[in-house]
């Protein structure tokens, strides 16, 4: 199976130095554990710290050289079409750029591939040419999908941690550099300014309620005026607890 892993020029979460994006390193691990040939693919001005990805279990990396501020999508689409990959893995979203997570969807649309989001585990499917994907859902739930290949799959941060860095593997790894397709980015209407954290909503009472109600909601407990049992026998207490848990629906 030929697997392409899309690698983006990320920045470290805290220091903002150029660094590989953690979720893409996790994608490399998923590709390595699935077996088959894995290829890294990066389109951008320089490879920089992405050389480290070779130490995390990626045997070879193709760098499509672009000018600063060029759109990577046409170069990546061209390389993916040419490579005839069975599976394309990408991170959920980049870190340090636009961080919108739109590029995998745009690529899937251009290549006509089906896309599945938020994979945490990959395995061979029941029939040849299929893949079993475990998808992360909120609150720790999972969805197991069987999809037909070729496909594009994005990886969720809840996937297994990246393989540890091996210096010898990073030295041994193969980097091929070739020119990409120059394509200017579409002009953006965005106005940019330094980030300012905004207060999150906390009040339970909505805007329509009176000031007194909003104050009450902010200071009092959520389920105020609950039931109180003072010194019941342990059996009575147990019965009350189970009945209450069933009533609110957490216990079957």
């Amino acid at each position: 199976m030929r697997i392409a892993v899309l690698l983006s020029a990320g920045r470290h979460r805290v220091s903002a130095h150029p660094a590989p994006v953690p979720v893409e390193l996790q994608a490399i691990r998923l590709a390595a554990e699935l077996g088959g040939e894995a290829f890294g693919l990066h389109a951008g001005p320089a490879i920089g710290p992405l050389h480290d990805t070779l130490g995390h279990g990626l045997p070879r990396l193709t760098h499509l050289r672009l000018a600063e501020n060029d759109d990577p999508a046409p170069s990546l689409a061209d390389a993916l079409r040419e490579g005839a990959f069975d599976l394309v893995l990408a991170g959920r979203s980049g870190q340090g750029g636009e961080d919108a997570g739109l590029l995998p969807y745009a690529l899937a649309r251009t290549l006509g591939l089906p896309i599945v989001a938020d994979a945490v585990a990959l395995a061979e499917g029941p029939q040849p040419g299929t893949l079993r994907v475990e998808q992360a859902l909120p609150r720790g739930a999972r969805r197991r999908l069987v999809i037909r290949l070729p496909a594009l799959v994005t990886v969720h941060p809840a996937a297994p941690a990246p393989l540890p860095f091996a210096f010898a593997a990073a030295r041994r790894g193969d980097v091929e550099t070739r020119p990409g397709i120059a394509a200017a980015c579409a002009p953006s209407e965005m106005e940019e300014r330094p980030y300012r954290p905004r207060p999150k909503l906390i009040a339970k009472a909505a805007g329509g309620a009176s000031a007194a109600e909003r104050l009450k909601a902010a200071t009092e407990s959520a389920s105020g005026g609950g039931k109180l049992l003072v010194e019941p026998t342990p059996d009575n207490a147990a019965r009350a607890i189970l009945a209450h848990l069933r009533e609110i629906g957490v216990l079957a």
Binding site: S223, G226, K227, L229, V230, P234, A238, A240, L242, H244
Partner: peptide, 24 residues
């Protein structure tokens, strides 16, 4: 915590736990 709770039981947790296990 008793004030915050929707169902508050004033009892020793050490005695309630085995009772709950027995009941389940």
């Amino acid at each position: 915590m008793i004030e915050r709770a929707g169902l508050a039981i004033v009892a020793d947790a050490q005695e309630v736990m085995p009772a709950l296990l027995r009941l389940i």
